[in-house]
Design a protein around this nucleic acid. Structure first.
Length: 709
DNA sequence: GTGGCCCCCATTTTT
DNA sequence: TGGGGGCCAC
């Protein structure tokens, strides 16, 4: 144990050895917070003699949970992992909810609805309420409901803030009822219902309070109201709540995360011990200085400053490219140079951007250059159609009341159950107050049901198939069950239709089979439940191998928690970062700034910041202005220039004009611009120029005194 | 019931 | 500029 403590710096050690009670560790990027968390567990078990069974460690991502398990394994051995509870909020809540299902209106096999499922269900609500989904976007209703739930505002408490939210209130009530009928919980329910359970059942609460004597929380700034409520409830008895977080890295406010929880935490308990981890082990001093200058402009933060014993390192490179193609080309050239000359391996490099759409230009250039890359999280595996379909079959088998999944596959592959038949069945099910599946079963006895002749036969055939699969679900492992589904339902051959696309989709199914295989060692009873649960709660970054052997392309959001020796951040322009839609309020702007800060602090030794002169946006060419955040970095930390000549464009270049399409110019009044067009006019020359300051202008070269820039 | 066309839209997405 | 979803026509 002394060895374990010896590797810590004084602040880390103070955190690890903090006495019982409420502890807030403010941990800047690269300050070793995972180390503090794992060593704290070691300290509690080895030094204080706490049983690992009494410890809960909560993270936000499965990746963080896995990393923590690996580190604990290395530090304390395998045995501890069998007893300690480590997982995401959602995973831990699911476990509690399944175990306590008797206290809930849901049964143990409940489904977990992701955002796509939620939107489907909301569409259904809108239909049933005769609301037009063109007036009310299902997506935005989903968002409103999600927000309400993350603050534990239930359907009956929901008060529409504005007139437009009137519909949300009506949908919310129905939506929540339908979830119950479907025996399903959405992501937000996993938290909200857990709060309700713990609040409503003294014995249940006591049980978990007694079990979990020590609760440790990672990324505390990302908790929302209901997550914080869960923590307060669970720690209510003993008060041993150890949270680690950094307000400066809060980038999920738009999803309900509320970093003011950090302040609340300090206010809610009198005994909070606050420890600052300011020594950074990741980046060069130059990178940290740049980061500091950016983040310190934020008003809503507790002042702190990272320092490091690392070398000052190279200056940050900042430059302007002509457009996004040139920007991408620069990145690629530089990447090749870094590999060839500076000894970096391709997996050391990352390119980050604000929006996924920005990956396109990069990808095109990489593909053209024949350079492999890893695009993180663009089309997510579990959102692929074939994967959702295959899973929908398994979900219906697992929980036949899951109407969203049933509807998804009822006619996939085609089995002559058309729109009309489904509508009839849906209406009838509703009038009988039963689920779709039950309605199908009732069709057998009810000759008079208002469900069409041919459709009826098809439905009964499909029902038999499902019942057959349900009957064997506890006798087969997930893989066998999946294979049986693919075979009996014809979905396998439906996907493999001979086309290339079909082959690709089959490959994806095969990948899913590979995942299913991993669950084969579990007892058959739990195999399907566990599989569906984990598959519902994974994300894309979870599968990002630590060292991919190719440069990573990823959004700034996805970069959180990662680090790379070399980082490129592209598109540092007003409207892109900060994003156009996040410039309205100071709060949004501060979050954009934090996002930039997160990006900067991912870099270990080299950082490149790029912006363009003009950028194609939605097919339109727009002049871009350098991001205001760039101006926050003192010039002595920067090196760089505008890139050389703009790419020569394949236009009819005339020798009679001095200026040509694509030339950069400087106008005494309008400043910098790029020539769009030029033609001789008398003994002068008329040029059309797009200026950064004023947009497109036509002027005479001689008269204006324009110069090549 | 299905396929094709047209129109609309366009951040970020730990679970 | 490109993709996805809804509607209309066969």
């Amino acid at each position: 144990m002394d060895d374990i403590l010896a590797v810590l710096n004084p602040a880390q050690r103070e955190a690890v050895e903090a006495p019982d009670g409420h502890v807030l560790v403010v941990a800047g990027p690269g300050s070793g917070k995972t180390r503090v968390l794992t060593h704290r567990v070691g300290y509690l078990t080895e030094r204080s003699g706490i049983s690992p069974y009494r410890i809960m460690a909560v993270t936000f991502t499965n990746r963080a949970a896995r990393e923590m398990k690996e580190r604990l394994h290395g530090l304390l051995g395998y045995q501890i992992l069998r007893e300690i509870t480590i997982g995401t909020f959602h995973a831990i809540c699911v476990r509690i909810l399944r175990r306590e299902a008797d206290h809930l209106p849901y049964d143990r096999d409940f489904a977990i609805y992701d955002q796509g499922d939620q939107v489907s269900l909301i569409r259904q609500c809108l239909r049933e309420l005769n609301l037009d989904d063109s007036d009310f976007s299902p997506r935005s209703i989903q968002n409103s409901i999600s927000r309400a739930k993350s603050q534990m505002i239930g359907p009956t408490e929901y008060v529409p803030a504005r007139y437009e939210h009137e519909a949300v209130a009506r949908v919310y009530r129905r939506y929540q009822r339908l979830l119950l009928e479907n025996n399903a919980l959405d992501f937000d329910d996993l938290l909200m219902v857990t709060v309700q359970l713990l609040r409503g059942n003294k014995e249940v609460l006591d049980k978990y309070q007694r079990q979990y004597q020590h609760i440790l929380v990672d990324e505390f700034q990302d908790t929302n109201v209901s997550q914080y409520a869960i923590l307060k409830l669970l720690a209510g008895g003993h008060g041993n709540l150890f949270v680690v977080g950094d307000e400066d890295q809060s980038i999920y406010a738009w999803r309900g995360a509320d970093f003011r929880n950090v302040e609340r935490f300090r206010g809610d308990y009198k005994d909070v011990k606050v420890i600052l981890l300011e020594q950074n082990y990741r980046s060069t001093q130059t990178i940290l200085d740049a980061a500091h200058n950016v983040i310190s402009r934020n008003v809503q933060r507790v002042p702190k400053k990272l320092w490091t014993e690392n070398d000052p390192g190279s200056p940050v490179t900042s430059l302007e490219a002509y457009d996004e193609q040139e920007e991408a080309q620069y990145v690629l050239d530089e990447i090749e140079r870094l590999i060839a000359e500076d000894g970096y391996s391709s997996g050391n490099l990352a390119v980050m951007y604000r929006t996924n759409a920005q990956s396109r230009a990069l990808e095109e250039v990489f593909v053209r250059g024949g350079v492999p890359y890893k695009l993180v999280g663009a089309t997510r595996f579990y959102e692929r159609r074939e994967i959702k379909d295959a899973l929908a079959y398994l979900r219906v088998i697992h929980n036949p009341r899951d109407g969203v999944s049933l509807r998804r596959i009822i006619n996939v592959p085609r089995r002559s159950i058309g729109r009309k038949t489904i509508d009839q069945l849906e209406l009838w099910a509703e009038s009988q107050g039963v689920s779709l599946f039950e309605a199908m079963q009732m069709l057998r006895q009810h000759e008079d049901a208002p469900v069409g002749g041919r459709g009826r036969t098809s439905l009964l055939g499909f029902l038999e198939l499902l019942e057959e699969l349900i009957a064997v679900r506890r006798e087969l492992g997930v893989l066998e069950l999946l294979d049986l589904v693919l075979d009996l339902t014809g979905y396998g051959s439906y996907v493999r239709d001979g086309s290339d696309e079909g082959e690709e989709r089959w490959e994806n199914i095969n990948e899913l089979r590979g995942v299913a295989r991993e669950y084969s060692s579990l007892p058959l009873e739990e195999s399907l439940t566990t599989f569906l649960e984990e598959v519902a709660l994974v994300s894309e970054v979870d599968n990002l191998e630590e060292q991919a052997q190719a440069p990573c392309l990823l959004t700034l959001h996805m970069a959180k928690g990662l680090e790379f020796p070399v980082v490129f951040i592209v598109g540092l322009e007003e409207g892109v970062l900060p994003h156009q839609r996040s410039m309205e309020t100071p709060e949004e702007l501060e979050e954009e700034r934090r996002l930039f800060y997160v990006g900067i602090t991912r870099a270990k030794d080299r950082l490149f910041l790029l912006h363009t002169f003009r950028r194609a946006l939605f097919g339109r060419d727009e002049l871009s202005e350098p991001s205001r955040f760039l101006a926050d970095i003192p010039s002595e930390l920067l090196q760089g220039q505008e890139l050389g000549e703009p790419p020569s464009l394949p236009t009819a270049a005339s020798d009679t004009t001095r200026f040509q399409d694509g030339d950069r110019v400087r106008h005494p009044q309008f400043g910098k611009g790029v020539v769009l067009n030029s033609k001789a006019l008398g003994d002068d020359e008329e040029v059309t120029v797009i200026f950064r300051s004023v947009g497109i202008k036509r002027c005479l070269v001689g008269l204006a005194g324009m110069e090549k820039a």
